[in-house]
Structures are given as structure tokens and as C-alpha cells.
Design a protein around this nucleic acid. Structure first.
Length: 664
DNA sequence: TCGAGGGTTTTTTTT
DNA sequence: AAACCCTCGA
């Protein structure tokens, strides 16, 4: 028998001495110690805990540049970020720092990375590479259809609506928890419907499977399974990835952390960056404890803390620290700055909503006089409707703005109508799109639509054959013209823009009779035409619309066109990672921020607190927290409101109270 | 079976 | 303010 001799493997390979002079960039000089430690890391697992404004992006960017300078192939670096915008920004910054090699790194959101990977390796998975992606509202439509088919909407007792069912299913997928547990925890009043919801889930799954459709969660699930499968496809993929970096790790969920684990199962080269105090996506299954569990996932992980803040004045930091100090559970970080001190944050109580808006307008104009560009000012809010009255005042004062977050262009009914036509063209089995399109036609209601759809899936109605045999009712004419249209666009045109053109001619009259406010909506159609012109094939168009929809309809494009400066209005969620000279937070009122929804539970209230922390740490120089004292509340009529608990106990040394008075 | 009309509820946040 | 549900007349 041969003698066994086991070589012990040291957990840490000794760091090679690297000559700092050989780099184009002087990393030592341009980064502080902790940042340098992170940026110069090569192999191994690293957890970077980076407080707000501590140069987290900067560190990642420098690490990318350094790895490339060391000679690693840019395309072997995978940078997973929360939005594609963030990925692009990082690549641009890295390219500006070094050179264009940096633009060659791989990057994107978990979802967009999953999309690309699954299409590329589809033959290794039981998957059609032409799968369509269902966005949230598509998924909900499918669920609604199933719900109606099961007649669950006619129950004696209120059955959860499509949005709730979707949330339950999605939460279950993202947290890898079964439905029963989710119901028990989040929706105890619907627990009795567990069997029904389960049935819906099964039908939903098989519908998606039959039609090669993946919803947001499926993208992640398929990717995770592909990675854990570890077949030849997985190995091929992993051989192309040498370094994985994840930004905003505190907002990842179980599924995503499994993916990170799977992506690095061979070489364990991973660096994740995050801040537990900024975790604000638990409604999507994110768990801020995830970040603290990272060392369990990677036992060799080194932890690096970035604590010096480069963004805000000490006054703003003190205010933010006060807010987060009261958090029940946190992993202490000490944030400090060497920036010269500035003004105390202001807490502004306005008489009503309109006065709050007028204060912001006037202060913004003043700031602009003082030389602060509009681009460097933002108004942040908890939910997107809170900016409505401000938007009116901004329009009156002619202050250009863009709004981020809230109702998206792509979710407006008229754009969804148009997309439905295109989707049928792409996938004739897309029953949800059929349903939507059919209901647009005179004389076709839910029942008839259902019947027609049955005929389509059973093959009784063929898209390229004359349909007269099957149809003989009063909707015959409109249905035939629809078939003609679909036939026309699929056989005579190949560019999405050309198809859309024909669809538009067909859709215009329907559009005008369906929407009373078609004038307002008209502009969106034109914008959509412009967007579609950028695409050569339909599949990419449809994927992009699901994964990276244009944020805003009218205002966004208008602002870009004129290259004019604009004020930013944003939900706090969409403001993540960004910074401005001056930040206004509005509606700091009990019931609004923290949101009334969050009252029942400790964890949700804590998340509201972190949200306030995120909002206030966006400010570099000025921070104003505003609230109206009287606010129209839809449930109770006019009420006198209470300032948010997050600011009501702020002491004089932390913030200054402003009282607004009307000039006579 | 359609579609209009009325009453009710519901609302965060995003890929 | 908009989405959803239900009812009822045609």
C-alpha cells in the first residue's frame, strides 16, 4: 500500500510583495489605508463594511483598475450591482481612471446577469433560449388569469388579490421559505387559503414552463440551480469568471447569496461591499443579517471596515448617527469626517403641504442664486405620490426636474397595450398578451376572450389560416382584423419599429375611445416609438423592457434633450448610492414616514429608520427635513399631523427648527 | 355575455 | 386618484 502523505494547505497564501511603482496609478496615495487594503486584495474572500459616504464605489473602482493593471483579463471580473445604472457608472469611472480596458469587465444586476447567462448556456439547462421575461405586472396578470379560471374570485370570503398572491409567491422564492410559513408570518388572515394559493402556484409554474416564460424570481432560481448543478455548462461558465464583486450586499436575499456562493465555488475569489445600516429592501426578501452571515458562507473571509466619511459635514453625520443610534440591532460603526464643519440640518414645519412645496421652491431658487447647480439638489420622499403637490409648484416656478421611482412608463396601460401586440408576435402562445389584446376589441369580454384563447392553445385557430370556420358571432369582424394585423406584422416586417408602426395605426382608434385622457397619454406613445427604434430585434427589446425599463416617461427625456440642469425628485429607494450638495426630505410625518403600513411590526419600523438614515446621509452640505402640520388624509379627511418619530426627539445641538411664516 | 355604473378598498419601496 | 369588485340592464 502506498504511503499517504497529506500536504497541509495554509488557509492564506502569503501576500506577494508588489512593487507599487510599477502601476500607472498611485494607489497608496489616492486611497486611505482601509480602502487600499480592499483595493489591493487579490485572491480570497473579503467582506467590506462601508458606512455611508466612505468611498465604497471609489474603492471598488480602484480595485478593478488595479486587477487590470496586474494583468488580469477584464472580462474575467464580474461586478454585480443593484441597478444597471450603478454598474455603468462604475465602469465609466474605472475607464476614466485607467483606460478602456475597464469597460470590458462584466457587470450588471443579478437579474440581467442571469438573463444573459441563461440564454448563453440554455442548452445545458432544460430551457428554451428564446424565453420571455415576465415583469411584475405580467406575472400578476398571469396569476389573475389563473385565479379567475379557478373561480377563486367568487369566494364567500375575500380572497387575496393578484398583487398579494404575487408577493407571497415571490417572497417564498426569494427567501427560500415555503408558502405556509410566509402566510403564517405575513398574512395570517389568509392562512385558510393555503391550498388554493398552492394550486395557483402550481398552475402558474406550469403555465410559465409551457410557454417558456421566466419571471424575475425564475431568473435567479434557474441561475442558482444551474450553478449548483455543476455540470459541463457550469464549469464552462465558471472558467470565465475569476473575480466576483458584489455591491450593496446588505440588500441581497438568500437566493442571491446562494448565487454568489455558486459563482465562487471553485476559487472563492469574492469581495462583497455593503452597510447593514442601509438595508432597505426586506420587502423583496433581503435580510440585512445576510451581510453578517457572509463569514459563515466563506470562513476565510477577511473583514475590512471603511469608516472615514468623505461626503457629509460633521453636522449631517451627527444627525444621521442620532437616527441610527436608536436602531435596536446594528453592528457598530464609527463614522467620522475631516470635512470642515457646516450648517446644522434644518427641521422645517410648514402649515400645510402647499407651504412645504413653496418653501422648497424658494429655497431651491435661493441656492441656485448662491451658485449651487440644480443637478446638485434633490428632494427625497418615502413614496412617490408625496411629490405631487411639489411638482405642481415646481411647474409654476418653471424649475425643471426629473422624477425617479414610482409608476414607470412601461407600466402605463397604453404602453402595455402596445407591448402586448408585439409580444404575441414574438410568442403566439403568450396567452396573457392575447387576453389583454382581445379585451381591447368591441364585443369581446372575459368569456369570449377565454374561449378564443382555448381555441388558440388547442390549435383550432391558426394564425396564418383563414379563421372564418370558427368564428361566427358579432365580434367576427374585429377579431378577423386583429388576425390580419398580426399576420401582416409577422410576415411583412422584421424590424420592431416597423411592426410597431403598423400596430400603432391599428391601435390609435382603440386608444382614443378607451382613454378619456388620451391626449396626455399620446406623448408616451411617441416616446415608445423612439425607444423601439433603437432595437434591431424584438427579443432584446422585450427583455430590456422587463429588466431595465426607461425610468420615466415625459420629464426624463425632456430633461435629457435640452441638456438643461434639473432638480432630482426621487424615492429614497431610488436614491441609494447617490449624493447631492443639498437634500430635502419631505413628508417626515407619522403615518407617512414611517409609513402607516410599517406600524404593526418592529422589523418594518426598523427598516423605516434605516430608510431615514439612508435619506439623510445622501446630503453633502445641507440637509432639510420638512413636514406639513396639516395634511389631507384620505381616510379621515383633514387632520392635524404628528411629526415623524425620527425627528421629534432631535435635540437643538443636532438640528435647527425652522418655522415658516407667510409674508403679508 | 358585455359593458356601464357604482361602491369600496387600497397604497410603500424595485428587479 | 386609481384599481378592483360587484350588480344590473341590454
Amino acid at each position: 500500500m502506498a504511503k499517504k502523505y497529506v500536504l497541509t494547505r495554509t488557509s492564506q497564501t502569503p501576500q506577494k510583495i508588489i512593487d507599487e511603482n510599477k502601476f500607472e496609478i498611485d494607489y497608496r496615495k489616492e486611497l486611505n489605508d482601509a480602502q487600499f487594503q480592499a483595493a489591493s486584495a487579490i485572491d480570497g474572500a473579503y467582506l467590506v463594511i462601508a458606512g455611508a459616504g466612505t468611498g465604497k464605489t471609489r474603492t471598488l473602482v480602484y480595485r478593478v483598475a488595479r486587477l487590470i493593471e496586474l494583468g488580469y483579463d477584464p472580462s474575467s471580473i464580474l461586478l454585480l450591482t443593484f441597478t444597471r445604472k450603478a454598474a455603468r457608472e462604475m465602469m465609466n469611472r474605472a475607464a476614466a481612471l485607467l483606460d478602456n480596458r475597464c469597460a470590458k469587465i462584466n457587470g450588471g444586476t443579478f437579474h440581467s446577469f442571469a438573463n444573459m447567462t441563461l440564454r448563453k448556456y440554455s442548452k445545458f439547462i432544460n430551457l428554451n433560449s428564446n424565453f420571455t421575461i415576465l415583469d411584475q405586472s405580467d406575472s400578476q396578470d398571469v396569476i389573475n388569469l389563473i385565479r379567475a379560471q379557478l373561480h377563486l374570485n367568487q369566494k364567500q370570503q375575500r380572497f387575496p388579490n393578484k398583487a398579494t398572491i404575487y408577493k407571497i409567491l415571490s417572497l417564498s422564492a426569494n427567501t427560500e421559505t415555503d408558502i405556509g410559513e410566509i402566510l403564517e408570518r405575513e398574512y395570517p388572515h389568509f392562512e385558510q387559503f393555503l391550498p388554493d394559493i398552492f394550486k395557483i402556484k402550481q398552475l402558474y409554474e406550469s403555465y410559465k414552463y409551457k410557454n417558456s416564460m421566466l419571471d424575475y424570481d425564475d431568473l435567479l432560481i434557474y441561475l442558482r440551480n444551474f450553478l449548483s448543478d455543476f455540470g459541463p455548462g457550469t464549469k464552462a461558465l465558471l472558467s470565465t469568471i475569476r473575480f466576483v464583486m458584489v455591491d450593496e450586499y446588505q440588500d441581497t436575499n438568500k437566493l442571491q447569496s446562494d448565487i454568489v456562493k455558486g459563482l465562487t465555488q471553485l476559487n472563492h475569489n469574492v469581495m462583497v461591499v455593503g452597510d447593514d445600516s442601509q438595508s432597505i429592501y426586506s420587502f423583496r426578501g433581503a435580510n440585512f443579517k445576510n451581510i453578517m452571515d457572509f463569514p459563515k458562507l466563506f470562513p476565510d473571509a477577511q473583514i475590512i471596515k471603511l469608516e472615514e466619511n468623505y461626503r457629509s459635514t460633521q453636522e449631517i453625520l451627527n444627525f444621521a448617527n442620532h437616527i441610527i443610534d436608536k436602531a435596536l440591532e446594528k453592528y457598530t460603526k464609527f463614522l467620522y469626517t475631516r470635512k470642515p464643519s457646516g450648517e446644522l440640518p434644518g427641521i422645517i414645519s410648514a402649515k400645510n403641504e402647499n407651504m412645504q412645496a413653496r418653501f422648497i421652491v424658494e429655497r431651491v431658487l435661493e441656492l441656485r442664486e448662491e451658485g449651487v447647480p440644480l443637478n446638485d439638489i434633490a428632494v427625497l420622499f418615502r413614496s412617490s405620490f408625496m411629490s405631487f403637490s411639489l411638482e405642481i409648484e415646481l411647474n409654476k416656478a418653471n424649475i425643471p426636474y426629473i422624477k425617479v421611482g414610482g409608476m414607470k412608463f412601461i407600466e402605463t396601460a397604453h404602453i402595455k397595450d402596445l407591448l402586448a401586440f408585439l409580444r404575441i408576435d414574438e410568442n403566439p402562445n403568450d396567452l396573457v398578451s392575447w387576453y389583454r389584446v382581445l379585451l381591447l376589441h368591441e364585443g369581446i369580454g372575459p368569456k369570449t376572450a377565454q374561449r378564443i384563447m382555448d381555441d388558440i392553445s388547442s390549435g383550432k385557430i391558426k394564425l396564418n389560416a383563414p379563421p372564418d370556420a370558427v368564428i361566427k358571432k358579432n365580434y367576427k369582424e374585429s377579431f378577423n382584423s386583429l388576425l390580419e394585423l398580426l399576420h401582416n406584422i409577422s410576415s411583412n416586417y422584421s424590424l420592431p419599429a416597423d411592426k410597431l408602426d403598423v400596430v400603432l395605426q391599428y391601435y390609435k382608434p382603440i386608444f382614443k375611445s378607451k382613454y378619456d385622457d388620451f391626449n396626455k397619454r399620446q406623448k408616451d406613445l411617441e416616446i415608445f416609438v423612439n425607444i423601439v427604434q433603437n432595437y434591431k430585434d424584438l427579443q432584446t427589446l422585450l427583455s430590456d423592457m422587463a429588466l431595465e425599463p426607461p425610468q420615466d416617461s415625459v420629464t426624463d427625456l425632456a430633461a435629457e434633450d435640452n441638456e438643461e440642469e434639473f432638480l432630482t425628485l426621487s424615492t429614497i429607494h431610488s436614491a441609494k448610492g447617490l449624493e447631492w450638495h443639498t437634500v430635502f426630505i419631505i413628508h417626515a410625518l407619522e403615518g407617512f414616514f414611517p409609513s402607516g403600513q410599517s406600524y404593526g411590526k418592529l422589523e418594518t419600523l426598523e427598516e423605516e429608520r434605516r430608510l431615514m438614515y439612508v435619506a439623510s446621509t445622501r446630503a453633502k452640505q445641507n440637509l432639510y427635513v420638512c413636514y406639513p402640520m396639516h395634511l389631507f388624509d384620505r381616510q379621515n379627511g383633514f387632520t392635524i399631523s404628528k411629526p415623524s418619530r425620527f425627528i421629534s426627539d432631535v435635540t437643538e445641538d443636532l438640528a435647527e427648527e425652522w418655522l415658516l411664516e407667510e409674508e403679508y
